[in-house]
Structures are given as structure tokens and as C-alpha cells.
Amino acid sequence: MRSSFYQKLEKQVRNCEFPIPGSVAIIQPYVFPYLGYFQLLYSVENVVFYDDVNFIKRGWINRNKILVNGKEFMFTIPLQKASQNKLINEIGLVENQLFIQKFRQQLRSAYKKAPYYAEVNDVIESVFVGEYSNIGDLAIVSILAICRYMNMDLNWMKSSEEFCETKGQAKADRLISISKMLACDTYINPVGGKTLYHKDYFAKHGIDLGFIESGRVKYKQFENDFVPYLSIIDILMFNDKTTVIELLNNFDIG
């Protein structure tokens, strides 16, 4: 007999109904993340930005990739004393107008001839005019700005504000606790979590665990050979909102 999760999922896919009822994603905030991140947000009813867990150096919290001269280019938001011994919401930003100016110039040079440069650049500019106490808040605002641009409703909260009493629990146990506190019976994780979390363990605690995996994505980037796995910035520069929504729907959950 198939689990309630798979029965529910099959109904969603047949009827193109997302978000999945009673679902939650709990994920670290990334600055202008990749398409798969937004597919995860799109698929669930509730989003918890996991901002009170340890910062990961050389991860995606404060950096991502854009297209420069037909090749991927990594941009990095400068931080104050970044350390994997600190929580995401404990790491401040370097007040560096030079970086903002340089990043603005990089975007203009890279995308000024892209069809949606003007409107997408306005979205990016709206993020960098704010003041932030830590990198987590800047990353969250970058995500919310993109969601507003794509008319995506997001029921979101921060783990540091709403679920601080769950700190100290084991990784899977904390995710289960937060899911239950939200009265959610389905937890969706990026596909990379298959090595960390197990369906049987979640099921023992009354939670259906699913993993989201992006389908094949390809679109025109000027006249270059396609460069995959870039920031959502790149997708928005080259595609109208209707196409982006189609790309958002291009995923599987298993």
C-alpha cells in the first residue's frame, strides 16, 4: 500500500496543485539562490529559514554564480569574521560600498544586453539599499525580493525567532519538532539531503519525508553555450515571468 505522502503527491502532480497541503521546508538562507531553491519554496505551504545553525564557509549563504563573458563567475558578499563556529545570524556584513559598486558594475557589464536586465536589476538594487545586522537577513531579503517579483506568496518565518527552543536537538529531530510545531505532516528537503535523512525515521515520528529534484533546465544565454547551475539572477535576466513559472514547475518529489 502506498503511503499517504505518495498518494497526496500523485494528486498534486495530476492536478498541478502546489503547494502541498500540510508541508514545510526548513532551509538555510542563501543569497540570490539557484532555481532549485525556489522550486522548494514553491512546493510547500510553510518555509522556515534556518538562520540559527552554523555558518558554512565556501557554501552558498553569502555567494553565488552569475554569467560573465560566457563563463560562470562567483560573487561573494564580504563578511565580518566569518567562522563555522558561529551561527548564520551571528555573522555581520562588512560595510563596503566598494563591493556594492563593483557588483553593480559586474551585473551591468554581464547582463545589460539581456532582455529583462532593467526590471531585474531594480529588484537586485532594492536588496542592497537595506541595512542588515547579519548575512542571514540579507539573504532572506534577497529571496523575498525575487518571490515578490515572481508573484510567489510565501508563508515564512525564521528559526531563530519562532523555534529557538528546539536548538540543541539532533539534526533530524529538530526538523521533525519544527514540522510538528507547525502542524505539518510533510517535510520536503533538497535532494542532497538523502545522505543525511531517512524516510523511515521521519515516518516513525508521523512525518512524511520527500526530496525535491530539479528537472533539466536550459534556456538561451545570448549566443553562448549554455552554462547551468547559476543564480536565479541569470534565469530572470533571460526569461519572462511566464517562462520562469514553467521552470519552477519542472521538478519531481520522491
Rank of each mutant, 00 (worst) to 15 (best):
L40K: 02
Q221N: 05
I66W: 00
I178Q: 05
D173N: 13
P115Q: 12
Y116N: 13
V129T: 13
S177M: 07
K218T: 13
M181S: 14
D225C: 06
Q84D: 12
L154V: 15
R174M: 01
Y34I: 14
I140S: 03
G136S: 09
N189I: 00
G136V: 04
Q221A: 07
A139Q: 02
F18Q: 12
D153L: 06
Y111G: 10
P21L: 07
R174H: 00
D51F: 06
I77V: 15
E246F: 04
S83E: 06
G59S: 07
Y34M: 12
K218V: 14
I233E: 04
I140F: 08
D225S: 10
E131S: 15
V53L: 04
I232F: 06
T76C: 09
Y30Q: 11
V244G: 07
C147M: 06
N224K: 12
R216W: 08
K8Q: 15
E161N: 11
Q84R: 09
S133F: 02
T186M: 07
Q101K: 14
I253W: 01
S142Q: 02
K86R: 13
Y219C: 06
R216K: 14
S109H: 14
F75T: 07
D137S: 13
N239C: 09
I61W: 11
E125S: 10
E72F: 03
Q12S: 15
E165V: 13
A145G: 06
F99A: 09
E45H: 06
L154Q: 10
S214I: 08
H205N: 15
I212G: 01
Y132P: 01
Y42P: 08
N249E: 13
G192H: 14
I146R: 08
K171H: 07
L35D: 00
F5Q: 11
N62W: 09
G254F: 10
D137G: 03
Q106C: 12
I235P: 02
G59R: 02
